[in-house]
């Protein structure tokens, strides 16, 4: 595949759900969305609750299918691909880990290779490699169960599980949302490093613009099912869109207020 052709492409994708209250019963969770993701790119999707950002992610590995439009992965329309095989090729990190509580860490991480029929010894070696990769001690974590781990450790396992079958694409659904700020920051930058090192293509959902701006190459802004902006930080700031402006302005204002508060307390 050439450098210029996108790895993932959405083209006029529409997805509605039944049972919505606002718009006559049918809610358009994703409304005519088109965008491309280049190989090796880190894209963050930002938006409020109900903006359709998670739906967008679930469409990409066929956890749900669109009502209209096409989605291609590596140039291939995924409507014609077996969804099971597709999902095994794409890493997926769930909101609060989504780890299986009855399986130990090694089993959780090795699940997709196991489904693919990888030999046991290979899986074991891969699990150790992945534990190193997400900076968890092999011996200490391999045989433990998810409930014995901290939130940050669980999320590292979640990342390891997503990477187990050596995917080119990783989809992340608010992966660090439930973590404390310090852990979240550390995990974010660790993942960004992994992304670069492994040459991944990552789509990360977040509601935190700061996180999006700090980690991603480009940021997509979703609002009420529509993609209202897409671009790098400076491109977004040049846009004349009040909602995007508000999203970008908030972290800046917070930073300024924080600065002011801190300098005040230093003066005291």
């Amino acid at each position: 595949m050439s450098e210029t052709s996108p790895l993932v492409a959405f083209s006029h994708v529409v997805k509605s759900f039944n049972g919505g209250r606002a718009r006559g019963g049918n809610v358009r969770a994703v409304d005519d969305v088109s965008f491309d993701i280049a190989a090796g790119e880190f894209l963050a999707v930002v938006g409020g609750s109900g903006s359709g950002k998670t739906t967008l992610l679930r469409l990409a590995n066929r956890l749900i299918d669109p009502d209209a439009g096409t989605i291609t992965v590596a140039g291939e329309d995924i409507a014609g691909i077996d969804p099971i095989g597709l999902r095994r090729r794409i890493g997926y990190v769930f909101q609060s880990g989504g780890l299986f509580p009855h399986m130990n860490i090694a089993a959780n991480i090795g699940i997709t290779p196991r489904l693919l029929g990888t030999p046991k010894s290979e899986i074991a070696a891969r699990v150790d490699e992945l534990l190193d990769l997400v900076q968890l001690d092999r011996a200490q974590h391999r045989d433990r169960f998810p409930h014995e781990l901290s939130g940050g450790q669980r999320q590292r396992v979640g990342v390891a599980r997503a990477l187990a079958a050596k995917p080119r694409i990783v989809l992340m659904d608010e992966p660090f949302g439930a973590l404390d700020p310090v852990t979240r920051d550390a995990l974010g930058s660790d993942y960004r490093a992994l992304h670069a090192r492994l040459g991944l293509t990552t789509v990360m959902i977040t509601h935190d613009m700061t996180e999006a701006l700090l980690l991603a190459d480009r940021v997509a802004v979703m609002h009420e099912g529509r993609l209202i902006a897409l671009g790098a930080a400076d491109e977004l700031s040049r846009l004349d869109n009040p909602y995007v402006g508000e999203l970008l302005g908030t972290p800046r204002r917070q930073a300024e207020r924080l600065q002011a508060t801190l300098s005040q307390s230093i003066r005291l």
């Binding site: 099971i84 999902r87 769930f94 909101q95 989504g98 299986f100 693919l116």
Partner: peptide
């Protein structure tokens, strides 16, 4: 969230049920 995770990891409906 767990059944979704099972699907996301690439399990068939039967594998999700059994595993």
């Amino acid at each position: 969230a767990l059944t979704e995770a099972a699907r996301g990891a690439g399990m068939t409906a039967r594998q999700s049920l059994a595993m």
